[in-house]
Amino acid sequence: MNTPDARKKLQTLAQKHQILKHKAYYKINHIPASRLGPSERCITDKQYEMLTRQAYLDNEIVIVQEKLDGSCVCAFRQNNEIYALGRTGALANRSLNESLRLWGSWVKANQHRFMAILQEGERICGEWLAMVHGTHYQLLHEPFVAFDIFDTKNKELNYNTFIKRIKISGFISPFLIHYGEVCSLEQALNVLGKGHHGTVIDKPEGLIWRLERNNKIAFKAKYIWPDKVDGCYLTEKTGKAEIWNWHPDKGS
C-alpha cells in the first residue's frame, strides 16, 4: 500500500540491502528544449552552446547517443563477485520490483561477461529494458544496454575506453548518433529518426549529449520529447498487468 508507514518500511528494507554508499548513477540535466520532469533542471545556456553551436576546440569531443527508456541499473564488482544493483545502489534481487529481480538473475547468468571487463571496485551502468515503462521496444538485442563504466574513484571512463571495454564481453551501447564537433538538436533528431533499438509503437524517448574534454567527461545533457509521458505503460498508471519487452518466462 502507498501509505507513509508502508513507504517507511520499504525504505528501511532497502537500506539493509544497500551495497553502494551512494547512488549507482546520477541525474543528468536537460537541454533547454527538453521536457522537464519534477525537480529536474536544464544545463546553462553556455553549456548548451558548447554542445550545439560553439566553435570546435581540438581538445573537445561531442558525443550524442539515443536515450533509452527502461530502468537504470548497474553491475558492481566487489571482493571478486558481481552484484546486480538498482539505481539506488541496493541489491536488485531483493527488490519488490519484478523487473529488477530479473536483472539480478540476468547478471548472475552473465557474471563471466562482467568479470571480464570490470576491475575490483568498478561498476558498469546501463538501461535494463525488460519491462515496458513509457516506450515499447521490439528488441533486436539483449535487454541490457550499457552506457557507462565508473572506476574506483567514481569517475566515468571516457567514451572510447568504455567502448573498447564492453566489446570484450559483447555488450552493446546506445546507438551512436554523432561523434566529433558540436551537434545541433535538429541534426541529432534527423539521425535519430524512428529510433535504432526497436521502437515501433512509440517514438524513441530522446537523446543524450556528452562533452569530453582532454579525454575526460566534462558534462552530459539530455533531450526528452515534450509530449513524453513517463511510465505510461506501468501497472500503477494503467491498472493492468505489466507489459514486457523481454521476459524469460513469457516468450518475449
Rank of each mutant, 00 (worst) to 15 (best):
T3E: 01
T3S: 05
D5R: 12
R7N: 12
K8M: 06
K9M: 03
L10R: 04
Q11H: 08
A14Q: 03
Q15T: 02
H17P: 00
Q18S: 06
I19A: 04
L20N: 03
K23W: 09
Y25D: 12
Y26W: 14
K27G: 13
I31P: 00
A33P: 10
S34W: 06
S34H: 02
G37S: 05
S39F: 14
Q47F: 01
Y48A: 14
Y48E: 15
Q54R: 13
Q54V: 05
L57D: 09
N59H: 10
E60C: 08
E60M: 08
I61S: 10
I61A: 11
K67P: 00
K67S: 02
G70S: 05
C72R: 12
F76T: 03
R77C: 08
N80F: 11
E81N: 13
Y83E: 02
Y83H: 11
A84Q: 02
G89C: 06
R94S: 10
L96G: 09
S99H: 07
W106E: 01
Q111A: 15
H112G: 11
R113N: 10
A116P: 06
L118C: 03
Q119K: 15
E122I: 01
R123I: 01
C125G: 06
H136V: 09
H136M: 12
Q138D: 12
L140V: 13
P143W: 05
P143I: 03
T152Y: 09
T152K: 11
K153C: 13
K155V: 13
E156G: 10
T161M: 15
R165M: 11
I166Y: 01
F171D: 02
F171T: 00
I172H: 07
S173F: 10
H178Q: 08
G180F: 01
E181K: 15
V182A: 12
L185P: 05
N190H: 15
V191E: 04
V191I: 14
G193V: 06
G193F: 06
G195C: 05
G198R: 04
G206S: 06
R210N: 12
R213A: 09
R213G: 08
N215G: 02
F219Y: 07
K222C: 01
I224D: 03
D227Y: 09
G231W: 08
K237E: 11
G239P: 00
K240R: 13
H247A: 00
P248A: 02
G251T: 05
G251I: 07
S252M: 13
